[in-house]
């Protein structure tokens, strides 16, 4: 029993986080919007060169052979910076899925090299970044089809989050496009990694609000010296502190695949969603009218939190898994860890 990251894990996380924080500043996001770009190709190349896309792919298949506990901190960091590029979905869900296919039609190597594959999982209504993908993995019930970009008709759906380029996709499933009969643990991975990003987003909302509250003065004092403002931010931080360990535990337990493990992921998604929602609302409140504006950066993180909150299953849907868990699997102080529950 060791509920802490190893030195290696901390080192990988730190390297990725530093790169993301340095390159993905709010100023750079605004520049991208001005140019109409949802992907920064230079950063994408860096992500690729750092090997982040292949972290969860077995070494024999050209990856690093690492696990979700190695990657979870990077997903948090991607949330923290409001990363526009689909690093988390690709490295965490799509590429591991490609690696499991009997025949990935050369797409695994291509994706590890930086070509993007879009994902149309049945948990989600829309396919993100389909326009800049070389191919799409699309669901037809539990069946998975691999569809070339040219064989799909895309219709753009405008998201409140300007960096989420969403599409509905029209395509014709055929025996030739069928590549697998099951999504495996993709839905769990998606929910877990959305949760991790929401932890990062929540912390970012708190951090920018703290900075603002130190700077902005009213009644002759920084607003951050007023207790009402302090307590808003403290409450948001408490929510984060008791959602983060759930997310980290979920990363460690996901591979077990049991109901107890799935309930941990559901809990992670619910708790991180609640933390991000509270932190984003708190950020607006602490910024006053500025918090409502385009000019202040809060909205980047609020919008992403809103989008991720309903991606990969809403809180209500995940609550059903919690009910199933507490109704059928033992609860209590000796039933904390999924590894003890079979």
């Amino acid at each position: 029993m060791q509920f802490a990251f190893t030195e290696d894990q901390l080192a990988i996380n730190l390297a990725a986080r530093e790169m993301l924080v340095e390159t993905c500043t709010p100023a750079s996001l605004r520049l991208m919007l001005k140019d109409g770009r949802a992907i920064d190709e230079a950063r994408w190349r860096t992500i690729c060169e750092m090997g982040l896309l292949g972290m969860l792919v077995p070494e024999a298949a050209g990856g690093m052979g690492l696990g979700l506990t190695d990657f979870i901190g990077i997903a948090e960091a991607a949330g923290y910076v409001g990363l526009p590029e689909p690093l988390v979905e690709l490295a965490g869900v799509t590429i591991p899925l490609l690696a499991r296919l009997k025949d990935n039609r050369g797409l695994l190597e291509s994706a590890l090299g930086g070509n993007r594959v879009a994902l149309g999982h049945p948990a989600n209504r829309f396919v993100a970044n389909a326009d800049s993908a070389t191919a799409l993995l699309l669901g037809d019930g539990e069946d998975i089809h691999l569809v070339e970009r040219v064989d799909a008709t895309l219709e753009r759906q405008e998201s409140f989050d300007p960096f989420r380029r969403l599409f509905t996709v029209q395509w014709a499933p055929s025996p030739a496009t069928l590549v697998a009969k099951s999504w495996g643990d993709s839905a769990e991975r998606g929910a877990l990694l959305a949760a991790a990003q929401m932890i990062g987003l929540a912390q970012r909302c708190i951090d920018i609000s703290v900075a603002y509250a130190k700077d902005r003065t009213q009644f002759g004092k920084p607003i951050g010296s007023y207790q009402a403002v302090k307590h808003l931010l403290a409450n948001a931080q408490v929510k984060v502190e008791f959602a983060r360990p759930v997310v980290h535990a979920a990363a460690a337990e996901l591979p077990l695949g049991t109901l107890a493990a799935r309930a941990r992921i559901a809990h992670a998604k619910i708790a991180a969603g609640a933390a991000a929602e509270l932190a984003a609302r708190t950020a607006v409140q602490v910024h006053g009218a500025m918090g409502m504006t385009w000019e202040v950066d809060v909205h980047f993180f609020l919008k992403r939190a809103l989008a991720l909150g309903s991606s990969w299953g809403t809180a209500g849907l995940h609550l059903d898994t919690i009910f199933e868990r507490i109704g059928t699997v033992p609860t209590g102080p000796d039933a904390t860890f999924a590894s003890e529950l079979g």
Binding site: P245, H248, I326, P333, T336
Partner: peptide
């Protein structure tokens, strides 16, 4: 009421996990 009970269960688990993390540290 079921939702409140489920929330209590989640929070008690979250507390346990946070303490395991603290203790590991």
């Amino acid at each position: 009421m079921g939702e409140r009970v489920a929330q209590c269960w989640m929070d008690a688990e979250a507390y346990a996990l946070a303490i395991y993390a603290m203790v590991s540290k």
